[in-house]
Measured scan of single mutants.
Amino acid sequence: ENVVSAPMPGKVLRVLVRVGDRVRVGQGLLVLEAMKMENEIPSPRDGVVKRILVKEGEIVDTGQPLIELG
């Protein structure tokens, strides 16, 4: 699984990683606000951040690609 998608609609509050960062399974990639709750979106696997597909403040839909892992 190379693309991390939004599990719910919401607003991207914070991106916690940068392109080139090594991440571990379960590590927070970004914080999504949904229904006034902050939800940290975890990495599904170990890898390297290849691309960040959203910006802070952006509104996303369920299933929208957020981050690509390499």
Rank of each mutant, 00 (worst) to 15 (best):
R22Q: 07
V54E: 04
K50M: 12
N39Y: 10
K11S: 14
V48C: 01
G47M: 03
A6Q: 11
M35F: 11
L69T: 12
K55D: 11
T62W: 10
M35R: 10
E56P: 03
M35Y: 06
Q27S: 10
I52H: 08
G47V: 08
K36S: 05
R45F: 15
I67L: 11
E56N: 02
I52K: 06
E40N: 11
D21F: 01
V25F: 15
L69C: 00
V23G: 04
V19L: 07
G63F: 11
N39A: 13
E33Y: 10
G20W: 01
E33V: 10
R22M: 14
V15R: 02
M37F: 12
V4R: 05
L16N: 11
Q27H: 02
L53G: 15
D46C: 01
Q64C: 01
I67F: 05
G26V: 12
V12L: 10
G47H: 01
M8T: 06
K55A: 08
L29H: 02
E33M: 06
K50W: 05
M8K: 11
G20F: 01
G70C: 01
Q27R: 02
S5F: 05
P7S: 11
L53C: 00
Q64I: 09
R51T: 12
L66W: 06
L29A: 03
A6L: 11
V12W: 01
G10M: 15
A34E: 03
N39D: 07
G10Q: 15
R24S: 14
L32S: 10
S43Y: 05
K11H: 08
I52V: 12
S5Y: 03
E38R: 06
V31N: 11
T62C: 01
Q27P: 09
G70T: 06
V19H: 12
R18H: 14
N39V: 09
G63D: 15
D21V: 03
R14C: 01
R45D: 15
P65C: 01
S43F: 03
V19P: 04
K50I: 13
V15N: 10
I59W: 11
R22I: 13
T62P: 07
L32Q: 10
G20M: 05
I41K: 04
V49R: 00
I52Q: 05
V15Y: 04
V23I: 10
G57E: 04
G47A: 14
V48L: 09
E40Q: 08
I67C: 00
L29D: 00
V3L: 04
D61C: 01
L13N: 10
R22C: 01
E40V: 09
L69E: 11
R24A: 11
L29C: 00
G47Q: 03
R14G: 12
P65H: 08
G63K: 05
V17N: 11
L13G: 11
E58S: 03
V4L: 13
P44H: 15
K50T: 15
S5Q: 04
G28H: 10
V54Y: 06
V4C: 01
I59G: 03
G20L: 11
D46N: 08
G26M: 09
I67Q: 12
V4N: 14
L30P: 00
D61N: 11
V17A: 13
K50S: 14
E56F: 03
N2G: 15
L66E: 01
